[in-house]
Design a protein around this nucleic acid. Structure first.
Lengths: 124, 124
DNA sequence: TATACTAGTTACCTAATGGTTATTAGTTAC
DNA sequence: GTAACTAATAACCATTAGGTAACTAGTATA
């Protein structure tokens, strides 16, 4: 009984994580969301945050994120037309996930450089 | 000053999240790690957990994860050779991240189905 | 000899992802 | 008229990710 519960829990977790993955897959979606957690931004401002993204990819991924209700797009009828992107409540709900991703990214990088140092000590 | 701190924080977070993304990118790596959080497993057992993964992809991604020190591979010299995969401490350190991914995946799915229900109510 | 189980590997193909460069359209300033 | 700024879009190409199906090697069992 204990074993089958465990298996059930594993399968539930697998399904949920794959649901989440589908939405955040790709090189740019998470970075775009991270950029927007630091304030509503215009197209050009996001481009400045994520230096190596092309306008094509930014445009494409913003559309995807809007379709999935993670961000909103507001057009302002100012003199040069401006467009503001913002996180929706659903987008904001990724906050804890992003914090953990950030924390683990730092941890991982730390572990990797530590190991490289060790290796070079051995070979020296 | 406050604004430049914010910008700095944003850039740091962007770098860290992209570091993490590189390691966990793709359709299969997270599911494989999730499967291994529920106990050490053999090749065939992981295949059973993740029903739609092909042996090619499983083999390929296991190698990648081993190279990044997230999992270990142990060969047992039993009669039909068996191989056991397990999370390393670094792999285990993804636990909190996985919990948040799971939680958000469930939340996201809930939000999406709620919205679909609403839409059908409107059109009815 | 044939079948099955272990853990993969190989060759081949398609689809998705991402990159590059040039272009659009509307408005303001020079 | 021309340049510059806004937010994109289009055409084209290269790379990668991922899928399918067949096959390998070693051992045991019928």
């Amino acid at each position: 009984m204990e074993k089958s519960n465990r298996k059930e829990a594993c399968l539930v977790k697998l399904r949920a994580s794959r649901d989440a993955l589908e939405v955040i897959q790709g090189k740019w979606r998470i970075p775009i969301i991270v950029s927007l957690t630091y304030g509503n931004k215009r197209f050009g401002e996001i481009r400045k945050d994520i230096e190596d993204i092309s306008p094509k990819m930014l445009s494409q991924e913003l559309k995807e994120l809007e379709m999935n209700k993670l961000i909103s797009r507001t057009l302002y009828d100012s003199m040069p037309v401006t467009v503001e992107y913002a996180l929706t409540p659903l987008g904001q709900s990724m906050n804890r996930l992003l914090e953990e991703l950030l924390a683990w990214g730092i941890h991982f990088r730390g572990e990797m450089t530590r190991k490289e140092v060790k290796l070079s000590e051995v070979s020296a």
